[in-house]
Design a protein around this nucleic acid. Structure first.
Length: 295
DNA sequence: TTCCAGGGGTAGA
DNA sequence: TCTACCCATGGA
């Protein structure tokens, strides 16, 4: 129980044991910028990750922490198998990147990645939320992305018991006029792509959750993403990485600047030339670039 | 005021 | 397939 003012918020608790070890919640959370986008809230001091989701239609706060390879979950709704499945997906608890780590072990400068079993990328409560967040990273600086997501969540999400908001569902966005979204957020021209995607999902024309399904080939999923308005090669590579498919590089201004500074003496190469830097990493190109940028 | 950012779409070559 | 140009938004 947590008391706030005169109200008491009840938290249900559960644990999930992590089998793919070593594992560090902080490493997963800080694997990319998602933790600074609502409804995520990351307290690096306490090691607590907060988010929000709907459980059986009820807006719910959810908190994660880690202790000795066990994830502690606290939730304002009862912790069902669906919640446990969502937590497992978000925190990459079952992800096996042993093949990537095998690659890393064969390159001395990347051995530290294998030693710490890095490469797991924090995911949102569902792939729709991840996909919209990727859309909001296109042609904008990071503070703009934060602003767009913040306005989407607070304007169109549902309030949770503990003061957070859920990420708005595709159904909510599909049933909202594009002009309203454009006026209440700073998505600008991206609002058309957002509404198109939401309506396609709502009508059943796009089954976004199937992208998490390993039965589809990477090429099949990439084709589906590229067919969406507003989603190009950068967005496709980013979404694929979130579904554990690291074959493609997210070629954006950050990528080009990184490659230019590290491999081309500050001269910006053409995209096709820049991508060749990581060609030897085969299906792990995205992660190779990501960690090469960090080292 | 101008530039440009964790790009994408389109027309034309 | 590649290139040039335009798109809207807001922070620096």
């Amino acid at each position: 129980m947590v008391s706030i003012g005169r109200t008491t918020i009840k938290y249900y608790r559960d644990k999930i044991k992590i089998h793919q070890t070593p594992y560090s919640l902080a490493n997963v959370v800080e694997s990319h910028g998602w933790y600074s986008l609502k409804p995520f809230n990351w307290d690096s001091g306490d090691g607590i990750l907060r988010s929000a989701l709907c459980v059986d239609g009820k807006p719910t706060d959810i908190l994660f922490s880690e202790n000795n390879y066990v994830i502690d979950i606290a939730s304002t709704s009862p912790i069902t198998d669906t919640v446990r499945h969502t937590a497992t997906r978000m925190l990459c608890l079952n992800d096996d990147l042993s093949d990537f780590h095998h690659y890393c072990n064969s390159h001395q400068e990347f051995k530290w990645i294998a030693d710490q079993k890095l490469g797991r990328m924090l995911r949102s409560t569902n792939l729709w939320e991840d996909t919209v967040k990727v859309l909001c990273t296109t042609n904008i600086n990071w503070s703009g992305t934060q602003s767009m997501i913040s306005s989407l969540v607070t304007e169109f999400g549902e309030a949770t018991p503990d003061g957070n908001h859920t990420f708005p569902s595709a159904k909510v966005i599909a049933n909202t006029e594009q002009s309203v979204i454009k006026s209440k957020t700073s998505l600008g021209y991206r609002s058309e792509a957002l509404c198109d995607l939401a309506r396609s999902i709502n009508k059943g024309h796009v089954d976004i959750d199937s992208w998490d399904d390993s039965n589809y080939s990477t090429e099949e999923i990439r084709s589906q993403i590229l067919a969406l308005k507003g989603f190009g090669p950068y967005a496709a590579a980013s979404i694929l990485a979130i579904t554990n498919r690291f074959d493609y590089l997210p070629v954006d201004s950050v990528f080009i600047n990184h490659v230019a500074n590290k491999y081309f003496k500050g001269n910006k190469p053409k995209h096709r030339i820049a991508e060749k830097v990581y060609a030897k990493w085969d299906r792990w190109k995205y992660l190779a670039y990501w960690f090469d940028k960090k080292r």
